[in-house]
Simulated scan of single mutants.
Amino acid sequence: MTKYVMWGSYCEDALERRKPYRQAHLDGLSQQKESGVLVTLGPTKDNTKVFGIYDAEDEATVRQLVENDPYWKNGIWTEYQVKEWIQAF
């Protein structure tokens, strides 16, 4: 498998706006983690950016996971980038 990093941005007022979608978002992340595709994911301390590491077959898989997340579908995440990552250490 190949490792990928994902950087994205949160909308304004994300902490409030995410409330209706938070449990579905966390449930989906738990399933991804259990399956081994998600290594880690979380916000920056100021809640403006999201960072994730995935262990996936290809970039398309990561993009599909991001775009099916309730935060993406409901505008909590406003943009993202995926890059193949070489874990040196």
Rank of each mutant, 00 (worst) to 15 (best):
E84R: 15
Q32L: 13
C11F: 01
P70E: 03
V5Y: 02
W85C: 12
G8S: 12
K19Y: 02
L15Y: 11
G8W: 09
Y21P: 14
Q81I: 06
V82E: 08
P43T: 02
M1T: 09
V39D: 07
L65H: 12
G28K: 07
M6W: 03
N74F: 09
G52R: 02
A24M: 08
D58Q: 08
C11D: 02
R22A: 10
Q31D: 15
L65C: 08
A56T: 09
C11L: 01
A56P: 08
G28L: 03
R63C: 06
G28C: 03
N68L: 12
S9C: 12
W77S: 04
G8D: 10
S30V: 13
T48G: 11
L15R: 14
L26A: 09
P43R: 06
D58V: 07
V39I: 03
E79K: 13
D58P: 06
G52D: 04
S35K: 15
G8C: 11
G28V: 07
A60L: 05
E84K: 15
S35E: 13
R22P: 06
Y54W: 12
L65D: 07
E16V: 01
V82A: 07
P20G: 11
V39R: 03
L15C: 11
D69L: 02
T61D: 00
Y80R: 01
S30A: 15
D55E: 15
S35C: 12
K49G: 07
K33A: 08
V66S: 04
G42M: 07
A60V: 00
V37L: 03
V50L: 08
S9L: 13
T2P: 14
Y54A: 05
E12R: 14
G8M: 10
W85H: 13
L29S: 05
K49H: 12
E57F: 09
T2K: 15
E12I: 14
F51V: 09
